[in-house]
Design a protein around this nucleic acid. Sequence first.
DNA 1: CTCATTAATCGTAGAATGACGATAAAGAAT
DNA 2: ATTCTTTATCGTCATTCTACGATTAATGAG
Lengths: 89, 89
Amino acid sequence: MLDAATFAGICKALGHPARIRIIEHLRAIDRCICGEIVQILPLAQSTVSQHLKVLKAAGLVKGEVEGPRTCYCLDGEVLDRFKKTAASI
Amino acid sequence: MLDAATFAGICKALGHPARIRIIEHLRAIDRCICGEIVQILPLAQSTVSQHLKVLKAAGLVKGEVEGPRTCYCLDGEVLDRFKKTAASI
DNA sequence: CTCATTAATCGTAGAATGACGATAAAGAAT
DNA sequence: ATTCTTTATCGTCATTCTACGATTAATGAG
């Protein structure tokens, strides 16, 4: 369960279609690099990187550097708390 | 279940602490008029009216005019679809 | 070492958001 | 009819968001 401000923050991060699609993709394939998401979305690399930054700042996504690339995956813990809070609204 | 764009739109509407508080209050007392929400939040009447408009545009809230005042309540249907979609992310 | 690949950051421009006070509209009350 | 109450809308300003291209940083390959 999350307090109202934190919940609002996560909602805000999810409040963009591109970021929803990123989340859905990460859920589908577990983990992937930024470039893969760039392929999927009709957005520039820098824009995708920004969206990933927003999701990371909200805690929904974790990124670990693997050489020259960064591998992203969902933070199941945070996602779970979000779901539980959403269910209790 | 909602498509990605609709879900993102609702998340966006929920992406502000004041609007979360409005939703929570409406859930707690079922229905109330705008002025009551103005009492609760540290915001000007016009600002609260704007927030209500955002929630209404997202479909989360319904408002019916009752004489000079407007009575707001949650749209349980939409809220349910939101919760189900959130749970499936 | 040099070059290629990958992702983050910078700078920027335009659109949207959030806040307010002032005003308008609609009805109730006197 | 006039006044009061309530809410929506308007106009405005500062801030944030979204998108892009260009640049930088980091690493791997040759």
